[in-house]
Simulated assay, not measured.
Amino acid sequence: MSRWEPNARGRLEQAALELYSERGFEQTAVAEIARRAGLTERTFFRHFADKREVLFGGSGTFQDLFVAGVEGAPDGAAPIDAIAGGLESVAVFFEGRREHSRQRQAVIVANAELRERELIKLASLASAMTRTLRGRGVADPAASLAAEAGIAVFKVAFERWIADGEEHAMAPLVREALAELKAVTAGG
């Protein structure tokens, strides 16, 4: 096995995504993922707690970017505008990752357990955004509403971004979805 080659984690992620796409999540074993990556099962478990986490390993970085974007919003920014700062930050996270994101989402959509895990991660992200807004002095229910609205904007923009034939970058799609939300809530 070529354990000494660089980027073991990335190789495991790629191998898992390929196998999940070819065979399905449930039909893929950790041993197969490790073998395809040219690594051992032991190496797999050094990087991931289980085979689901291969698909969700970047969620901590994603959440950190979102939080930093909200924290970095100008003082006095409206809650939804602070969330917009977070949305802009995470749009950068996806640059150059469209095909990977499409494949990942197809695997998730095909498996109920993974869809549930995705919803849990989004709920955790909404909670982090709510806490961040509260830290900026936004009271509830405004903090919770803005955070949940931000997750909805992200989901809509993400779905558009991974759609077949879509070529726009994520950031303009996020801005469009946010503008649409603002128009809808303003009664337009």
Rank of each mutant, 00 (worst) to 15 (best):
R3W: 06
E5M: 08
E5H: 06
P6A: 13
A8K: 02
R9C: 03
R9Q: 15
L19Y: 13
S21P: 00
R23T: 05
G24S: 13
I33V: 14
G38S: 02
T43V: 15
H47C: 07
K51V: 11
F56C: 06
D64F: 07
A68V: 01
P74W: 01
I80L: 15
I80Y: 06
I80G: 08
I80D: 15
D81A: 11
A82F: 04
A82H: 04
I83L: 10
G86L: 09
F94H: 13
R98G: 03
R98F: 09
R102E: 11
R104V: 07
R104Q: 15
A106Y: 08
V107L: 06
I108A: 06
V109H: 07
N111K: 05
L114T: 07
E118N: 11
L119A: 12
L122R: 05
L122H: 03
T130K: 11
G135S: 10
A139H: 14
L145F: 08
L145V: 12
A147W: 00
A149E: 06
G150S: 01
F154V: 04
K155A: 15
K155P: 00
K155H: 11
F158Q: 09
A163Q: 09
D164P: 10
D164V: 11
H168V: 06
M170H: 12
P172Y: 02
P172V: 07
V174H: 05
R175H: 15
R175L: 14
E176N: 03
A177C: 09
L178H: 13
E180F: 12
G187Y: 05
G187I: 07
G188R: 12
